[in-house]
Amino acid sequence: MGFLSGIGRATLVFLAATGRLALFTARSLSHCVRPPYYPRLLVQQMREIGYNSLPVVGLTALFTGMVLALQSYTGFARFNASSAIATVVVLSITRELGPVMAGLMVAGRVGAAMAAEIGTMRVTEQVDALSTLSTNPYKYLVAPRILAGTLMLPCLVLVADIIGVFGGYVVSIYRLGFNPAAYLTSTAQYLETNDVVSGLVKAAAFGFIIALMGCYNGYHSKGGAQGVGAATTHAVVSASIMILMINYLLTGLFFS
């Protein structure tokens, strides 16, 4: 009996949490589209999420592209299929690794910061203070972050795609001694618009998830510094797992 009631309780807790998240999402979205808007805050968040994440995302993409070239060379050299490397690099980057790597890095950088900032505002009653000053916290705090996340992640991923392909190019030319012109031709040959677009759609979904989980966990944090710490961890972990899950689902949708 203890075991069964344990399962029952866990299920109820899970359902309650899912319901809370769904409600939060619906509320946030409705405030994204209804005035008043806060363009100043949106721009500030776009700069924070997009521009300030460039170094991290760029470096990640660079080394990912480089290691892809190196690794597929050691694999393909046995089959004399070295020209396939360019294709492997560009397709892996644009379809999967660009969006996923950027998503995970931004989840760590921005999702954590959102949860910590909103969480601190919650436990120090700043969120309540917003309401008493006739300002809706969903509009003022959540909507700009969600919009900025959804808009900026595709931009970041586009940059990551370019840098990643460049990383693969550098390794192939200067380390593996390929012909630059032949490499570029192979890169372009098998790349289709769909590969890039699917990656950008994924990126938009990831940006939404990162901002949503950051805001949600921050908004519902309680109990002082420890609560804010827990909210930050939750925001990053749950966003990362959801990114990987959604990536799988979207890949199934786009490429089946």
């Binding site: 900032e117 120090t124 009653e125 700043q126 309540d128 203070a129 000053l133 300002t135 003022y140």
Partner: peptide, 25 residues
């Protein structure tokens, strides 16, 4: 409302805190 811990917005300078209800509200 004057909150127990002040609840001032630490991302904004003092004057914008005081003017918050006027500007945003």
């Amino acid at each position: 409302m004057l909150f127990q811990g002040g609840a001032l917005f630490d991302s904004l300078p003092v004057w914008q805190n005081v003017a918050f209800g006027l500007i945003q509200g």
